[in-house]
Amino acid sequence: MIAEPAGVRRWVKHALTSQTHRPPAWGCRARAHALLCMTKHLTGDCKPRIVRTMAKIIPFRRPPEEPPLEPLHERAMDNLAFIRQTMERAGSFTAVSGWGQVVIGITGVLAAWLASRQASPENWLATWSVAAVVAMGIGVVTTGMKARAIGEPIRSGPGRKFVLSLAPPLVAGAVLTLVLFRAGMAGMLPGLWLLLYGAGIVGAGTNSVRVVPVMGFSSMLLGVAALLAPAAWGDAFMAVGFGALHVVFGTVIARRYGG
C-alpha cells in the first residue's frame, strides 16, 4: 500500500463526492490518480496519464465558399500595368523637351521675319539655313538635358531609333534644297521643308509620346498647303508650320510630360 499523504486522501474524497472539479496542484493530482486506479481497478501499476482532449474549433465566421478572387485579379491587373509601363518607358523616347520645342518655335518665327526682309534669294536661303542649324542645336541640347534629368539613355534604344528615323527625311530635304535652289525653284522650298520635316517627325514620333506624331502630321499638312499656295506666302507658312506649331506642341509636351 502506498503511503498517501493526508492531502491526497482529502482530494480523492473531494473528487468522489463533489460535483465541481477544481484541479489540485500537479504532483498531488498524479498521486491522486494512482490512488484512484488502485481503489477502482485493484492494480498497482497504473501510470498517471493525462488525457488531452482536442478542442473542436468552431470558427465564428463561416469560411467563404470560393477562394478570394479579387486580390489575385487585382494583382494580375497590377502586373499587366507594370509590364506596360516598363515597356513604354523602355521603348518610347520621352526625352523630347517641350520647352526646347517652344524655343525652336520662337527661332522659327524670328527666322521667318528675318527671311521675309531679305532681298536676294541667296540671303533668304542663308537665313533659313542658319535657323535650321540653330534649331537643331537647341533641339539636341534641350533633349540631352531632359534625357539626363529623367535618366533615359539617349544614344541607344528608343533615342537612337528616334534620331535614325528623323535623320533620313532631313538629309533628303537638304539635298533637295540644293537641287531645287539651283534650278531656280526656291519658291517650293518652304512647302518641301515642312512636308519632309513633318514626315521625319511622324516617323520618329511613333516611338515617342502621342503628341509628337500629331505635330509631324500637322506640319505635313501645312507643307502640302504651302506647295499649293502662291510662293510668296512661303515665309508665312514657315512661321506657322515651323514657328507656331513648335510653340503650341512644345507647350503641350512641357505641360503634360514634364518639361
Partner: peptide, 18 residues
C-alpha cells in the same frame, strides 16, 4: 519587359532605366 521592346540593352542603360 524592357528587353522585349529593345533589341539589346547595355548593363548601364538597363540599370538607369529601371
Amino acid at each position: 519587359s524592357a528587353l522585349a521592346v529593345n533589341e539589346s540593352l547595355a548593363f548601364n542603360e538597363l540599370k538607369d532605366m529601371l
